[in-house]
Nucleic acid binder design. Structure first.
Lengths: 146, 146
DNA sequence: CAATAGTCTATTAATCCGATAGAGTTTATA
DNA sequence: TATAAACTCTATCGGATTAATAGACTATTG
């Protein structure tokens, strides 16, 4: 499951993608429009800025804006940043690998083999979905849910 | 990410699948062999019993054993039981659905559309992988990791 | 009846999550 | 240059969850 932080991040980025190239956007605008607690959002945006995705301008007329192009911000990057590993198990994570303490031999561990399959299937989607893709989806509503 | 509980559950079930039809197995045997804290494992096995997957026998010569056939225990069932939702977001979960508070309209939410894709890809694997499949994988080591 | 082994209740420490408070710093502009 | 706007930083908070442990209890078997 994604954390709220992660979900909020994506929502905020999509919002900023909609305003791309229109100058800085106020935290409070995003907060109100997307129903995200303002102080929480502050921390999130700061983190996205430190990661090089957003830029900010202080003072009067300031705000946050996308520094990278919407199509260059992949969901994998955002999720890893705000939520951590994408894999089901640390021992199959590409970016957050940690040895499995219980395992005698990772190679013969059946669970990790399944976890790898899931990881690859998930990455295939998230690697190829950018913030601009998400924005596009919003504009063409889903045909059928579930 | 899967919780330790979930991972331990699967490891224990695979162990019991290996001993399928050979009578009850001691908690302490599983605990030692799989490096799972005994008391924690106790609670887990009890839960799997209450879910109808395992049976138990008390007293001398007692222990736990699989009640369902290894090929009938799907990973989806075990994970939902011990870890909760499989989906990335509650609003696209089939078994643990919860409305998304921030969303004005779920149908036009781009994130949930992506989350649905991921959910379906994940389920396609986990629905079709049983404890006996995991056991088989252990016997034929992975060719190439990562 | 005694030893074995699962059952139940409860408590714990540690961690993380989501959220908030408040002081500080930078900047535009009147 | 003073002021208000707006981001920045530190810090703290309650609550939930996770992982693990302790101990008393109950059922079974030889």
């Amino acid at each position: 499951m994604l954390s709220k932080k992660s979900k909020y991040s994506i929502k905020a980025l999509v919002y900023l993608a909609r305003e791309y190239d229109k100058g800085p956007v106020l935290i409070s605008h995003i907060s109100e429009s997307e129903h995200i607690p303002k102080k929480f959002l502050e921390a999130i945006l700061l983190e996205l800025k430190n990661a090089g995705i957003l830029g900010s301008k202080k003072g009067f007329g300031g705000g946050y804006y996308l520094i990278k192009k919407p199509e260059d911000v992949k969901l994998t990057q955002v999720i890893r940043l705000t939520n951590g590993p994408i894999a089901l198990l640390p021992c199959v994570s590409l970016n957050f690998y940690q040895r499995c303490e219980e395992c005698v031999d990772e190679k013969t561990c059946g669970i990790s083999q399944v976890a790898m399959q899931v990881r690859d299937a998930t990455l295939a989607i998230l690697e190829n979905t950018s913030i601009s893709d998400v924005l596009k989806k919003e504009q063409t509503p889903a045909k059928n849910r579930k």
